[in-house]
Design a protein around this nucleic acid. Structure first.
Lengths: 93, 93
DNA sequence: CCGTATCCTAGTCGATACTG
DNA sequence: CAGTATCGACTAGGATACGG
């Protein structure tokens, strides 16, 4: 996966391509993240325009607990799937 | 805060009272959590009925990354608020 | 007491088209 | 290229009423 975390800096369309997200949501979300101080936006007034995004210090620190959550999910997905099967099977009454 | 984490086991209306959540959402959410194997549901067929909920082993392990996220939020809320003020102030153009 | 069923509103998000 | 504007489908979730 291409992400700000690995690549440090990415442009708008690079993010869009790699995030299965609509242009609208990417724009809204980036603006939110920038407002919250998690993402840094750098505008280069060239032609064509070029805008680069990267994580702020706080944005990077946010990755830690989020990654932990992601790892938890990976480790437990199979258990959850199994629990669902059990539950659904018992519900077929 | 009264929670399954501290109290171990709580009844439906105890949870409802302490969660600022509608009966409908509590019911739906508990059912989901039970299905996913995060929450245990014990039905006592007394009169009036009594249903107890507690965290499963997996539910308890889930608290770890979620708590980490919560602590991150607590530690950074003021920074986020400050970033928002800065952003909003710069946007008043 | 512990839910389920129904209705309704407000928000989320993609698709599409347009701008500097 | 990097957005904004508009619309329409879908969903989340509260309020209310009812049932075992």
């Amino acid at each position: 996966m291409i992400s700000l975390a690995e690549y440090g800096t990415l442009r708008f369309n690079e993010l869009k391509r790699n995030l299965g997200i609509s242009q609208r949501m990417l724009s809204l979300t980036l603006k939110e993240l920038e407002r919250d101080g998690l993402v840094n936006r750098t505008y280069h007034p060239t032609i064509p325009p070029k805008v680069e995004y990267n994580l702020t210090k706080m944005g990077q620190s946010f990755r830690e607990p989020v990654s932990a959550l992601g790892y938890w999910a990976l480790e437990n997905l199979s258990r959850i799937d199994a629990a669902r099967e059990t539950y659904d099977e018992a519900s077929v009454n």
